[in-house]
Design a protein around this nucleic acid. Structure first.
Length: 423
DNA sequence: TCTGGGGTCCTAGGACCC
DNA sequence: TCTGGGGTCCTAGGACCC
């Protein structure tokens, strides 16, 4: 007989805020929010901030007053810090199971199949280890499928389970009861649109969905919806993904810190995006055959709007930054129009495929060994001395278009000069 | 003044072929 | 005058996730 699956979903509580708190423990009871890029909206909130009514994704300019009035600590995002803290948490988690899926920067699924342990106790052990060794509080949900583990995790964060922060779904009757209380729109994989469709069918709770006709659900929500129904019944059909597969596309894009009018400044920004994306491309040893560039104005502003994008199909795949910058400028020339206030631009590398080193090209357009070596040196220098240490002149120096990040904390863990000193 | 960024999967429908 | 139908491949767009 097939062994029963057991999944644990470990999720860091208010992750970005918790990272900030680790280094400023005096903030422990204070409301904190962390803003998205460009100090745009709130993307992480502590419980104290949630209690003030600050919604996820709320634009900062709309909540500034509440923040001031209530002494909310506001941070710009510091991805270097969060990435490093995430790595520490994931490394610790990997000691609790041989089968770990790092699902996002602040979440991981663990397979505990065949573990002969009390699952709640094991969850508590995981939680306290992470807290003790990194300072990050986590919640743990355990169940026989990923969808149920996600649900358990959500419930572990509130109500009666909150004080423990760990919830293991084991008995049928308990699962049935909790499914009956769980709103269908809070399920993993059910977004706004799907929730609307389900509600029009009078399916309001996870229990309603579990008991619905699978074929009917598949018609309404595609095969993914049917999978959710099966998982709610305890039939595991979303497997653990142990290694992360190569990306199929790589995007780099960002809003400007202010409106940008000149082609020159957009070129600088695009050159930077290409540099970032191409470095990622080389890191997974791939080449790209399609390059897309887009620019647009601020859709929230009452000014003339313009959006355009262009694509170049590269005859031979490449990962050489300067070649890609050249092509991106060709695209820009064809899509840029004078007289608009631009707010955002970006690039996408698509049609990625693994570099094999064996292919030759009839016209000799493929990347030469010399070019590849140059990129290798570039990547090594930037890895060691920090991003952007060595860059192409096209990326510019002043970068007036750069995003706002006015409330960023120091890089406590990754920069020597920012290390905490104890006096 | 100020509204994020990066990614995947699935499906419908068009193009094309026989 | 008769005006098919099935298959594959590709792409754009929708929906979802964090």
């Amino acid at each position: 007989m097939k062994q029963k699956e057991v999944f644990a979903l470990v999720d860091c509580n208010s992750f970005y805020c918790s990272c900030e708190r680790v280094f400023q423990p005096q903030y422990n009871k204070r409301p904190i929010i962390v803003l998205s890029n460009n100090d745009g909206c709130a993307v992480a909130r502590t419980d104290e901030a949630k209690a003030l009514g600050i919604e996820m994704g709320a634009p900062y300019f709309k909540i500034k007053d509440i923040c001031k009035k209530n002494n909310v600590l506001v941070f710009s995002s510091n991805y270097t810090l969060y990435g490093d803290m995430s790595r520490r948490v994931m490394t610790l988690l990997s000691e609790f199971t041989p089968e770990l899926e790092v699902y996002s920067i602040d979440e991981a699924f663990l397979s505990l199949k065949g573990f002969n342990r009390n699952l709640t106790d094991y969850g508590i052990e995981i939680k306290s280890t992470i807290k003790q060794q990194t300072g990050i509080p986590v919640s743990v949900g355990l169940a026989s499928t990923k969808v149920l583990a996600k649900m358990a995790n959500k419930m572990a964060k509130k109500g009666a389970f909150k004080s423990v922060g760990v919830l293991s779904l084991e008995s049928e009757s308990q699962i049935d009861e909790l499914l009956g209380q769980f709103p269908v729109e809070d399920l993993w994989g059910i977004g706004r649109k799907s929730a609307e469709k389900l509600k029009s069918l009078n399916i309001r709770t996870a229990r309603h969905l579990r008991d619905a006709n699978e074929l009917m659900i598949q018609k309404v929500l595609t095969i993914q919806g049917r999978r959710i129904v099966k998982e709610l019944k305890g039939e595991s059909c979303i497997d653990l993904q142990l290694s992360d597969p190569d990306k199929k596309q790589i995007i780099s894009s960002r809003s400007f810190g202010r409106s940008v009018l000149s082609l020159h400044e957009i070129q600088e920004s695009v050159a930077n995006h290409i540099s970032t994306a191409a470095e990622k491309l080389r890191r997974q040893n791939s080449l790209c055959k399609t390059l897309m560039v887009f620019i647009h104005t601020n859709r929230f502003k009452n000014t003339p709007q313009y959006y355009n994008s262009g694509i170049i199909n590269l005859t031979t795949g490449t990962s050489i930054t300067n070649k890609l910058i050249k092509s991106s400028f060709q695209i820009l020339d064809s899509i840029y129009k004078e007289g608009f206030e631009y707010k955002k631009c970006g690039v996408m590398l698509a049609d990625l495929y693994p570099q094999t080193h064996s292919q030759t090209d009839l016209f000799g357009l493929h990347d030469t060994t010399n070019e590849e070596l140059q990129m290798e040196v570039l990547d090594k220098i930037n890895l060691y001395h920090g991003k952007g240490t060595l860059k192409f002149a096209a990326c510019g120096v002043n970068q007036f278009w750069k995003m706002l990040s006015e409330m960023k904390s120091p890089c406590y863990t990754t920069r020597w000069s920012d290390l905490l000193s104890i006096r």
